[in-house]
Nucleic acid binder design. Structure first.
Length: 476
RNA sequence: CGGGGCGUGGCGCAGUCCGGUAGCGCAUCUGUUUUGGGAACAGAGGGUCGUAGGUUCAAAUCCUAUCGCCCCGACCA
């Protein structure tokens, strides 16, 4: 049925790329690993941006913009940070035809430039908290890239906040984590686990890294957003201090947090099917595609007239497209909108004109329904809500079905190989066990879940006592 | 960096082994008939075969070099 899209069961990775191509979401740029985001893909990003941006602003954050180019020496000021990022930096060595005195890196992330500026902006406890976000592009020289999931250049938002106390920074870190979870679940309809990253997986330069972690249809994990408590690491590296209420000088406490265009990859791999993209209604650039059907010019006029009347007051309420192109036939249009992931399709032809009905089709289920023309607006709104809900529930059920409690390492190894999924296992925090796990199974500890109850058990690697379970999975 | 694959009209490919008029499908344009799940027919336009050198009467095809991209792995949001 869907020409040109490889089935998920045949080759998941090929399927993913085919979905993107069929929906015209992105294309390869001329430089290896770089991606052109086409209008269909970018519209989804814009929808994500506008929702997230509103959430940040509601919680007191403001937007600003910092430069793309950073002096190389800045990266080196924070020991762990340089170690983590130096290998993947693109470095500018020449400008204006001359070799630069100091090389300049294209930002892989902006902590260093931003903290170099915060040094000038923060003097007193009265200047805190400083809650800044920026929407930007960053470059990381990755060895292996994949559209949306990992590209050399990607778009993201990065929040960088400064606080007077550790507790306040920690509170901010968790607040943002909550926003990310809410966004992922309520808008993307993508259920996520929240939790702390292990030391091994922690952001270079952070004291604590929290993440939201989602399960894709192939049962692999996708880290979909991170929120870091940076402690005083960057304040110390850039010597950012403030005077406290009682006159003492202290280093500022920091956080940083981000989500990227990777979310689009997550969206695709959570909901789409063998017929192409499926976009949840709240983020769909087009929520309803209307396909009129006619044979004669008279029929065309009548059908379009009726549809115009029905949609007369939809402007600003429902994002819809009346597809009245006459160089394509209905079947072609059905397919086209399907590949684009439009949640609801309405069909109306001569038959419906007479019966005062029309046909409503849901993209995610293929379910068709005849609805009275007098109630289209209500029915469509109802359906959009319902689809949003069903997509979330479907994804959640998939995650639940593929999440397992396992108490032996040998069983974990077997099952990781054969079925994938999330495994809740006891681990007592030893780095060596974590390294061994990755080496032997390619899987990693994704999160130490926030909502997991304390439970006495034995670490499956060492047999030592453990008080909690962590989530192990193979990841993107 | 290792393994695999590929560079030929806009896109997808065949042709390369065995040198001899650059081809097919899709897309595009024109016209007619069509239109409830990817329309049919007729016609048309569009290519220095990744790049550079070599062999030859003759190179997409053989030789040498080189550049690039994609997929799979190690590393990563």
């Amino acid at each position: 049925m869907a020409k040109g899209i490889t089935k998920r069961s045949v080759d998941y990775s090929r399927w993913y790329l085919d979905v993107i191509a069929a929906a015209q979401m992105a294309d390869y740029g001329p430089v290896k690993g770089c991606m052109v985001i086409r209008p269909t893909g970018y519209a989804i990003w814009e929808a994500m941006q506008s929702e997230l941006d509103a959430m940040f602003k509601e919680t007191g954050h403001v937007n600003a913009y910092f430069p793309l180019l950073i002096p190389e020496s800045f990266l080196q000021k924070e020991a762990e940070h340089v170690e983590g990022f130096a290998p993947e930096c693109a470095v500018v060595t020449h400008g204006g035809g001359k070799k630069l005195e100091e090389r300049v890196v294209i930002r892989p992330t902006s902590e260093t430039v931003i903290w170099s500026m915060y040094k000038n902006w923060i003097q007193s406890y009265r200047d805190l908290p400083l809650l800044i976000n920026q929407w930007a592009n960053v470059v990381r020289w990755e060895m292996r890239t994949r559209l949306f999931l990992r590209t050399m250049e990607f778009l993201w938002q990065e929040g960088h906040t400064a606080h007077a106390t550790y507790d306040e920074a920690e509170e901010e870190t968790l607040k943002i984590l909550g926003i990310y979870k809410n966004f992922a679940e309520e808008y993307m309809a993508m259920p996520v686990l929240t939790g702390l990253k292990t030391e091994k997986e922690r952001f270079a330069g952070a004291v604590k890294t929290y993440a939201i972690e989602a399960m894709m249809q192939d049962r692999r994990a996708l880290q979909a957003g991170t929120s870091h408590n940076l402690g005083q690491n960057f304040a110390k590296a850039f010597d950012v201090t403030f005077q406290t209420e009682n006159g003492k000088l202290e280093h500022v406490w920091a956080t940083s947090w981000g989500v990227s265009t990777r979310l689009i990859g997550g969206l695709i791999m959570t909901h789409s099917d063998d017929n192409g993209l499926v976009v949840p209604p709240r983020l769909a650039p087009v929520q309803v595609a209307i396909v009129p059907i006619w044979r004669s010019d008279d029929e065309k006029t009548a059908v379009l007239e009726r549809l115009h009347a029905i949609t007369a007051d939809w402007q600003g309420k429902i994002r819809f497209k009346l597809d009245d192109r006459d160089n394509y036939r209905p079947g072609w249009k059905f397919n086209e909108w399907e590949k684009q992931g439009v949640p609801i399709r309405l069909e109306m032809g001569p038959k419906d004109l007479a019966s005062e009905e029309l046909v409503m089709v849901k993209r995610h289920s293929g379910e068709k329904e005849r609805i009275p023309q007098s109630a289209v607006y209500e029915k469509v709104n109802e359906a959009l809500e319902q689809v949003q809900q069903e997509l979330f529930e479907r994804a959640l059920a998939h995650r639940e079905k593929n999440s397992h409690y396992v108490d032996s390492y040998s069983e974990l190894k077997e099952r990781l190989k054969d079925e994938g999924g999330f495994y809740y296992v006891h681990w007592n925090g030893k780095r060596e066990s974590e390294d061994k796990l990755q080496e032997e199974t390619k899987a990693t500890i994704r999160v130490i879940p926030s909502d997991q109850p304390e439970e006495n058990g034995q670490c499956i690697f060492t047999g030592e006592a453990s008080s909690r379970r962590v989530v192990v999975a193979k990841a993107y």
